[in-house]
Amino acid sequence: MYAALDIGGTKIAGALVDDAGSVLHRVERPTPARESAVRMARTVDAVIDALAVHCDWDGVRGMGIASAGPVDTAAGTVSPVNIPSWRGFPLVDCVRAHPVLPVGIEPVLLGDAVAVAAAEHWRGAARGFDNVLCMVVSTGVGGGFVLNGRLHPGPSGNAGHIGHISVAFDGPPCACGARGCVEGYASGTAIARHAVRAGWAPPAGEEPTAAAVAVAARAGDERAVGAYDRSARALAAAIAGTATLLEVEVAVIGGGVAQAGDVLFTPLRRHLRDFAALGFVSGLQVRPAALAGDAGLVGAAAAARGHTLAPHRQPAVG
């Protein structure tokens, strides 16, 4: 059995996951994202305490932590954009110090999108593939890689952060400091913003969200259809470029925007045929993610299990 934590801007979840990747027990607390670092840490402790009710911790073989990022897996610290009080916060040390953890368990930290990649490779839509790009398209756009059958988090744990690949040199400025980033075109926020600028409006009393735009697109609203087409084109450009560099075999798309289904995936596959033109990437598959809200927890458990986790440093050759 493995313990897992999934820390995001909305919720902090914990789970006990068995060796087959099934969630046995799950607990959750709201994230006090605008409160102090101490209050945040106490909420993490409360989740671990709640898990302890369901198990004998002596039977837990490892613990994984998926966190919103950026993360620094080498230092064990996190600086989630949506949790202002945590900047360089020593999350691994904080969890390791919890008195319920057995001596010898070393928590494994990874970014939340990297955890989703681990989960989809272990139990989901990327199972059976050795080279995978997994994307989470939601309020932002994140991602993670499996290369040669093993998770590839990179030296700091942030490899695969595809949302900040530029797809337009003179595109709109991004919060990261660059221009024309995928996130500025493809995120749920960007989809809703573009639809509104094109003249679409949500039903009275509702907020302009990507989900509402998807409903309008299914009903034939051309402005809504155009917003999703724009998002799909940016995603296709980024996916094709990544596949050309790394020869990934499949791209798995999850997150809230992926819930639009064919509204997103039909134009995405069409645009991908234009961008993925070279023969060695022309067979690239795009699949919706198979795992839902527990993907981060399952991926954290996969990392603790060592199922697909690649080392940070490769041995020197020669």
Rank of each mutant, 00 (worst) to 15 (best):
Y2F: 15
I7P: 04
L24C: 12
R26G: 05
T31Q: 06
R34A: 12
E35T: 06
R39H: 10
R39L: 12
M40D: 02
D45H: 11
A50G: 07
C55A: 15
D58S: 09
R61G: 01
M63N: 01
I65S: 00
A68F: 04
A68L: 02
G69V: 01
T77G: 03
S79I: 07
S79F: 05
R87E: 06
R87N: 04
G88V: 08
F89E: 02
C94K: 04
V103Q: 07
L110C: 09
G111E: 10
L133Y: 13
M135V: 14
V136P: 05
T139G: 11
N158L: 13
S166M: 11
P172S: 11
P172I: 08
P173S: 09
A178R: 15
C181D: 13
A186M: 11
T189L: 14
H194V: 06
V196C: 14
G199K: 10
A201G: 10
E206H: 13
P208L: 07
A219C: 08
D221T: 12
A232R: 11
R233M: 07
T244Y: 09
L245I: 13
E249P: 02
I253L: 14
G254L: 13
G255E: 05
L264D: 08
L264G: 04
H271A: 11
V286Q: 01
G296C: 08
L297I: 05
T308I: 10
H312M: 12
P315H: 01
G318T: 00
